[in-house]
């Protein structure tokens, strides 16, 4: 390998490989987003039967059905409908709800904001704690701290979100009465009040996502500490703190960032259940309600937002881990 690589050295210098990799990954991300949108759109096309009849009920006259189809644009071929749907979304227009004919963007905007608020609040608590304890568990592997963290995280991972949520409600809302069990917030709610009402849902999310993040951080650091260059540093007589700061940290950045971004993606999805438990007016709640009502257009729109965020966060994770990889930062 070294021999051939040496011969090839001249050719690769034209373009920085790191730029090339990032561009490739971004392009792949765009393709993924496109395919995801096609998938979400076309899932409805697989519906046996007809949406119009379904919405209007069996009793509807053929004329009403035809009129309804025309109104909603169902009479056009699927490909055309897909592109006009996509073009609409690009301008912030998601179409109309089948259930109540209101524009979807109107339904979504404030809820999306609420969901992002909740997710960020959970992330702000979860990320520092998870990374700190994950790193500590790895550094003091096999210690009491490590073993208790292992049992604790294993247990929390196993809990359904609603179980965690109800336990928190039981303790903090019912018994102690310090936080509300229902997070009824609106656009008028002042900031600190909003924070106060979101404490329990974000705490639930934090607990759920933190366990994963801690375990992944720990595994990444342990993997790193097992590498021969760390042993080399020990055999060079470097102090433990210096080994961690100078030798482990620069290489740990990539895996830790990766872990964080991946868990943010989990978190965005975890929001759905938590919103339902706390009756939090977010996008997840909207999605679940629309599924129950079979309001397909709203389901599509909110699925697309969730899936898009998920794809983008995964993309971010990959790009960041490329950018922080020392081998790629300094090309041959």
């Amino acid at each position: 390998m070294p021999k051939q690589a040496m011969y090839k050295r001249g050719d690769d210098n034209g373009m920085w490989p790191i730029l090339k990799m990032v561009t490739q990954r971004l392009a792949l991300g765009v393709v993924t987003l496109f395919v995801v949108s096609v998938l979400i759109f076309s899932s409805v096309e697989f519906l046996p039967g007809d949406i119009a009849t379904e919405i209007l009920g069996q009793a509807a006259t053929p004329e009403t059905v035809a009129q309804f189809r025309k109104d909603v644009g169902l009479d056009k071929p699927p490909v055309e409908r897909y592109f006009s749907w996509l073009a609409g979304i690009a301008q912030g227009d998601f179409g109309k709800s089948l259930a109540n004919q209101r524009p979807i963007s109107e339904l979504i905007s404030s809820r999306l904001w609420n969901t992002l608020f909740l997710a960020s609040m959970a992330a702000l608590i979860a990320v520092p704690l998870a990374v700190l304890f994950g790193v500590l568990a790895a550094l003091y592997r096999g210690s009491f701290l490590d073993r208790s963290i292992n049992v604790m995280t294993l247990t929390t991972i196993s809990f359904p979100e609603f179980f965690v949520a109800y336990i928190l409600i039981m303790i903090f809302a019912v018994n102690l009465g310090v936080f509300p069990s229902i997070s009824n917030i609106g656009p008028e709610t002042p900031f600190w009040d909003r924070v106060y009402r979101s404490v329990l849902p974000s705490l639930t999310l934090t607990l759920v996502v933190m366990a994963h993040m801690m375990r992944m951080t720990r595994a990444a650091i342990i993997n790193l500490l097992a590498s021969p260059y760390i042993e080399m540093a020990r055999l060079k007589g470097i102090t433990r703190s210096q080994i961690i700061i100078k030798h482990a940290l620069p290489n740990a950045l990539a895996p830790i960032i990766n872990v964080i971004a991946l868990n943010m993606a989990f978190l965005v999805v975890g929001v759905v259940l938590v919103e339902v438990v706390f009756v939090y007016p977010g996008l997840g709640q909207l999605l679940v309600d629309s599924v129950a009502k079979r309001d397909i257009t709203v389901v599509q729109a909110s699925s697309l937002i969730f899936a898009g965020t998920y794809v983008l966060l995964n993309l971010l994770a990959d790009v960041l881990s490329i950018l922080t990889n020392p081998r790629l930062l300094h090309p041959r």
Binding site: P228, L235, K236, G237, H247, P250, N251, P326, R327
Partner: peptide, 24 residues
């Protein structure tokens, strides 16, 4: 022992590629 290592007793490993820190 730490003070001896590197200064008075040194080590050369089998795989140099893995034993050098890629970040420095």
């Amino acid at each position: 022992k730490r003070k001896l290592r590197g200064s008075r007793i040194a080590y050369v490993a089998q795989s140099a590629a893995a034993s050098f820190n890629p970040a420095h």
